[in-house]
Design a protein around this nucleic acid. Sequence first.
DNA 1: TCGTTCATGTAACGCGTTACATGATTGC
DNA 2: GCAATCATGTAACGCGTTACATGAACGA
Lengths: 202, 202
Amino acid sequence: MRGWTMGARRGRVLELAVLGLLYQAPMHGYELRKRLDLELGTLRAFSYGSLYPCLKEMLRKGHISQTEQSDEEVHGRRPRIVYRLTDPGHDHLHRLLTEVAPAASDDECFGVHFALFGHTRSDVRLRVLHGRRDRLRGRLADLRHHLADRAPAVLTSDGYPHELHRHDAECVEREIGWLDGLIEREEHRAGTAKRPDLPPAG
Amino acid sequence: MRGWTMGARRGRVLELAVLGLLYQAPMHGYELRKRLDLELGTLRAFSYGSLYPCLKEMLRKGHISQTEQSDEEVHGRRPRIVYRLTDPGHDHLHRLLTEVAPAASDDECFGVHFALFGHTRSDVRLRVLHGRRDRLRGRLADLRHHLADRAPAVLTSDGYPHELHRHDAECVEREIGWLDGLIEREEHRAGTAKRPDLPPAG
DNA sequence: TCGTTCATGTAACGCGTTACATGATTGC
DNA sequence: GCAATCATGTAACGCGTTACATGAACGA
């Protein structure tokens, strides 16, 4: 069984999402899985086959701790295993959100990072937003270049790839516009609000 | 029913994409990889570490054949290994595009299926488009339900998840609108054009 | 001559999934 | 009683990736 043991490389969406959820409140595994579905940026439902081994690994690394519910908390029900963030886990979350930020331009990572923006500094947020926008601009350039080559051929014989790329380019354009607005607001807030959440980098 | 185990699970994007590209023209591995980047729906660049083992497996199954370029074709250059679709491979492609169509509502699969619409019958196209739209409608309902619960909280303390979901819902809405248009056109074509590509289902 | 692109691969690993187990609790 | 959901896991596998090799052809 060679997978699964070594340290956190890029990606690692599930771990980050779990840290983010447990930052908000302690939870047991089953509820974590439910919340992963909608709460976070990723609308994807992770399976228990991913979640429980992940929790086990996080326990081993000391990022979370597990406690059984006491008899008072459980009113006749079976006690559940509640996980909560430890101090090292909290540090780890913070480190992931700041240091790993460049990798957050990745499609799947960005959503989770963005959803956890509340726990980050303004400069980190701007870095992630800019990274995402740059990436999308590159993709848009590729798409336009590719669209310019091909014939228009509106869905007649085989304009399907062309139509797909046209629609994709439209989506990317709109997301760039969305990011423009977010960046502007973020910069304005950074200039006026004297960072309400955390002190500047030291 | 979990007896869905054997053969083509969902996913399997790479194999489908390669079949689709080789359907258009014979190619060698390096060119396949380049084309996978932009030609197909998926803008993702598959790595050689995926591509060459995949080609090997497809050879083993007899879906493609390889031939070295002859001395006449190669003008001083090193001869390259050219892959081409066999008749069983062609059948397999057709089967994937029709039978496995329901799974094509998946985010990543849909793009490739759509790009290959030129090789399918009108009824299959409509089935895929409807499947995709239904899936997106479900997601939109989830998003709206989730958005209705939460406070508006426009980006003040922690409105980031809310803003993310709002933007996501907007994107999903637009894609549904796009699909509406495609479905309408497809139905119109099916009604008038006497199916230009293939005879109706038997 | 030297870096870049072309061209073809293999080994090891990453990050998940589905299928398989197991049992308690809730609602009809 | 019996099904659905809650709740916790393990084993085997899927479908890719990165890193590692290797070498020929091309342009500055």
